[in-house]
């Protein structure tokens, strides 16, 4: 049923010509996707999808629409050829799915290789009941380091393309002013923001035992500050978290992650080997995972904020009101 809803919202996105509607629909689509992922047991992924897809992406797309205008032009040519190409691809792919194991079958190839080992050994080796966190930060630490670096690079790219909006103080009102005149919004925001930030910390530090971890916590942390900026204005938010600090955070997280790896080398282990970080191997794992997750959280929060500042601090050009 959820899958049908997913498909319906995707088709609605195709049909909608007003880009504002497209953005709202894609937020709905992300929420349905997150629910579906929960049904499929992927609670960590669902949490990420809900905060990233429905939260941050929507804010970014709306920020872009503000700068570029929200109406899509009518297509100039007939969509028959693209339709044929897409349908042919679909046909080939659906033919391909007939060869893969039946949904939910425990004897499928994917469940035979390393997954049973992770599930059996992870708790003893790392002391972390959430296997997703254990695999993410410990078994596959290299992957995660690479992905954190990709996020870092994308953040740097956005900063280079748009600037991080340090000159926003010149502007007294406008989008920098936020929505302070609305009393209800202001009060509700003041009530909610501390809990949002606290929840981020909970997700960060409880990520070993329940769903959560550095990626989710970083996004929620940034979302709290973005919420503040939307209600109280960019100027105040940048006083709270200056762009300079954000720039430092972006780099600091990756540095923390890489240094944890290097520390393993110095103590006589391999790169990203946590067993040597403490006299007790399980404690060492805990310590390593903790700092690695902290690094991930810092970089993700920094990059998300940097991206938001870059979009929000951009001035709308006079010719773009069409």
């Amino acid at each position: 049923m959820l899958l049908v809803l997913l498909l319906a919202s995707a088709l609605a996105i195709v049909r909608a010509r007003n880009l504002f509607a497209v953005v709202v629909l894609s937020g709905i689509y992300s929420f349905i996707m997150a629910t579906q992922l929960t049904v499929l047991d992927a609670v960590d992924v669902a949490m990420t999808e809900a905060s990233v897809g429905a939260g941050i992406s929507t804010v970014l797309l709306l920020g872009t629409l503000y700068l570029t205008g929200s109406e899509e032009a009518a297509p100039g040519h007939r969509p028959i050829l693209p339709l044929l190409v897409a349908l042919a691809t679909a046909g080939i792919l659906i033919y391909g799915t007939l060869g893969i194991p039946v949904f939910g079958d425990p004897s499928g190839a994917i469940h035979q290789h390393v997954a049973p080992r992770y599930l059996q050994e992870a708790v003893e080796a790392t002391g972390i009941p959430n296997v997703v966190t254990a695999v993410l930060a410990s078994y596959r630490g290299y992957d995660t380091l690479g992905e954190t670096t990709v996020i870092f690079t994308a953040g740097i790219g956005v900063i280079l393309l748009l600037g991080i909006g340090r000159r926003v103080r010149e502007r007294a009102q406008g989008p920098g002013g936020g929505m302070q005149e609305y009393l209800v919004l202001r009060v509700i925001a003041k009530l909610l923001i501390p809990f949002a930030l606290l929840f981020a910390l909970y997700v960060q530090f409880h990520g070993d035992f329940g769903p959560g971890g550095g990626f989710q916590a970083g996004v929620i942390l940034a979302a709290g500050v973005i919420f503040y900026a939307v209600i109280f204005g960019l100027t105040k938010a940048q006083k709270l978290v200056p762009p300079r600090l954000v720039e430092i955070l972006v780099a600091l997280g990756v540095a923390v992650y890489a240094l944890v790896g290097a520390l393993g080398l110095m103590l006589g282990g391999n790169y990203l080997d946590y067993f040597v970080l403490d006299h007790d191997p399980v404690h060492g794992q805990h310590r390593g995972v903790f700092w690695v997750e902290a690094g991930v959280c810092i970089t993700v929060a920094g990059v998300m904020l940097a991206i938001f500042y870059a979009f929000a601090g951009r001035r709308r050009r006079p010719d773009s009101r069409s």
Binding site: A42, D44, V45, T48, E49, V52, G53, I56, S57, L60, I110, H111, V114, A115, Y118, L119, V131, V132, V135, L136, R140, D143, T144, E147, V150, I151, A154, G155, G213, F215, G218, V219, V300, V303, M304, I307
Partner: peptide, 17 residues
């Protein structure tokens, strides 16, 4: 299986970046 969860979790954040 936890492995796809790990891969997709990071993919989502990389995706938004």
């Amino acid at each position: 299986n936890p492995l796809p969860h790990v891969l997709i979790l990071t993919a989502i954040v990389v995706g938004v970046a």
